[in-house]
Design a protein around this nucleic acid. Structure first.
Length: 529
RNA sequence: GUCUCCAUCGUCUAGUGGUUAGGACAACGGGUUCUCAUCCCGUAAACAGGGGUUCGACUCCCCUUGGAGAUGCCA
């Protein structure tokens, strides 16, 4: 059977970096296997799932090159009838029941199947004893076993399990007498609705069973049935819960492999049971570790910078972000880091995915982005810069020749497109002067005198080229009693207002004679005494 | 509280019983250079702790610690 995977986000207008990483891994897996990558929009939260939010989601996916198969995507709200039909089916099969605990009306609750023969991966471990607190009566009914455990302090601690978790249950009092025995009563409880309340019990004795599955990234996973409880699948207001909707849609779409975040591992056990009870073969599962912030904590609203849109806005290239994100929790097994899509598709495999969560490192992303920018063809780089620059008032109508010259000069220095903001001094009459830099560079009287002598000397330089400038400026420094080159940084400060930039002679050439002279003469660089 | 999962330099990672524990980003030092960046060279930097198993553990098992997730009407 060919591979079918899906990305199933709920559109909220902001696509989270962890979510998109899940999408990337699904996409990589599908392309590697030659399978299908589907999109399912889980738009059941009607408040937040606006058309704009959905548009944002699609835009982000396109930006990152995450093309999905079988368009249009499935919208979960369109599947509501299937969800409710599935709930009905479970109800009539006896795999679910109605319960009014807690809600306004009656919710539908999926019962962890008592008869586990049909569930793959369920194994019997053996007999086990669980101490319970005698002050709280043990209850046994079709809804499960209710009891209070005993905390370290000896007080009652909330406990309970699904009935399936307590096969062969026997309830004992402190003196050893058996208050209850489940054997033979299963049918009466499950079908007949019989229930029992047993005060004064101190110990539960039952046969433990666990459910096991092999996770594609984490390996063997298992969970005792007695640590599970029945699951609400339809709310008392009649709306399907995530667990039901998700599983039903996966069945409808014929999903073969579910690759999702770590936070779903616990759900997997009950989802497997839902698949089986709905007559479907459970898919294979792989759980990706979470991406955490610089403090090692899960991203929260306070972190702000965890949305894909933010990275786009800051001028990260989609290929760079894509590449970086693949390296978060995965590696090809050799020393390669910068890899093309084709290489990534070729090398990707789930069993090389990390088991532990990973921290986002913006510096490494920035470095990688710089590498991608460096590789951009000149024309492509020029177009992107022009677009970026147009976001600034002074960057709207730039002379193309000047812009091309600036791009060529600055290409190797740019790591993130947002930084083109610092190119302002190439395009305006007067730069913003960094007072600290000017004060540091121009505090020496000899230097100031030399800078003041420059306008007349530079005026005759024709053509105004880097090579010619270098000669004249070195001579000016020498004439002022300075070592050649000692005038360069003061000159940079005086003309660009900054202490950093490309080569000063090349920079002056690009800025041009007129503005260079004007800036020197205006003496806005002169430190205020 | 209970359950599940996780643990190699600051960060991302390689490593599947025998390695000088490798690479990348960041840091630091040097070279190139007028500054910054690029580029080149180099330095510092890790197996959470404790028990086992073994001739030999980063690697296998157990415990502790720490972290994350889950714990009936969020997804």
């Amino acid at each position: 059977m060919s591979v079918r995977v899906r990305f199933a986000p709920s559109p909220t207008g902001h696509v989270h970096i962890g979510n998109i990483r899940a999408a990337i891994f699904n996409w990589l897996f599908a392309r590697h296997e030659g399978g299908a990558f589907l999109l399912r929009v889980e738009d059941t939260d009607l408040e937040r799932s606006t058309p704009e939010a959905i548009a944002t989601l699609l835009e982000v996916m396109e930006w990152l090159g995450l093309d999905f198969d079988e368009k249009p995507p499935m919208y979960q709200t369109s599947q509501r009838h299937r969800h409710l039909e599935a709930a009905e089916q479970l109800l009539t099969q006896g795999d679910a029941y109605r319960d009014s605990k807690g809600g306004e009306g009656e919710a539908v609750v999926f019962r962890i199947p008592f008869d586990t023969e049909r569930i793959p991966g369920v194994v019997t471990v053996g007999p086990i004893d669980v101490p319970v607190h005698p002050d709280v009566p043990v209850t046994v009914s079709s809804k499960g076993v209710g009891y209070a455990g005993v905390s370290a302090k000896g007080t009652p601690a909330p406990g309970g399990a699904c009935l399936a978790g307590c096969k062969d249950l026997q309830v004992f009092a402190a003196d050893g007498t058996c208050l209850f025995s489940l054997a033979g009563k299963e049918e009466a409880i499950l079908r007949g609705g019989e229930s029992f309340t047993l005060p004064g019990a101190t110990r539960l004795h039952f046969t433990r069973r666990t459910i096991t599955y092999r996770d594609l990234v984490k390996g063997e996973m298992n969970k005792p049935l007695d640590s599970m409880r029945d699951v609400v699948i339809v709310r008392s207001d009649g709306s399907p819960v995530f667990h039901l909707a998700n599983v039903v849609d996966d069945i409808t779409q014929g999903i073969t492999h579910i690759i999702r975040g770590d936070d779903h591992v616990e759900n997997t056990f009950r989802h497997i049971m839902l698949f089986v009870c709905l007559g479907a073969t459970p898919p294979a599962y792989g759980h990706l570790p979470m991406i955490v912030n610089a403090a090692g904590k899960p991203y929260s609203k306070r972190d702000g910078d965890a949305f894909v849109g933010d990275f786009r806005a800051r001028g990260f290239l989609p290929d760079a972000l894509f590449n970086y994100l693949t390296l978060l929790g995965w590696s090809p097994g050799d020393d390669r880091e910068k890899m093309t899509r084709a290489e990534l598709v070729e090398a990707f495999s789930l069993n090389r995915v990390q088991h532990a969560s990973a921290q986002m490192d913006i510096q490494k992303l920035t470095n990688l982005n710089g590498q991608y920018i460096a590789e951009l063809p000149e024309e492509d780089f020029f177009v992107r810069c022009r677009e970026r620059l147009s976001e600034f008032e002074w960057g709207r109508e730039l002379d193309e020749g000047l812009l091309r010259a600036v791009c060529q000069l600055m290409h190797s220095r740019l790591k993130v497109f947002a930084d083109v903001e610092q190119w302002r001094y190439f395009f305006v009459d007067f730069p913003e002067y960094d007072a600290k830099v000017c004060a540091k560079q121009c505090r020496d009287d000899a230097v100031v005198a030399a800078l003041r002598s420059l306008p007349t000397k530079l005026a005759s330089v024709e053509p105004f080229t880097a090579a010619a400038l270098e000669e004249v400026i070195a001579a000016a420094a020498t004439a002022a009693g300075l070592a050649p080159g000692k005038l360069n940084q003061p000159l940079r400060a005086a003309v660009t207002g900054s202490g950093i930039g490309a080569g000063i002679f090349e920079t002056l050439e690009v800025i041009g004679k007129e503005r260079t002279l004007a800036r020197l003469q205006a003496e806005k660089w002169l430190p205020q005494k």
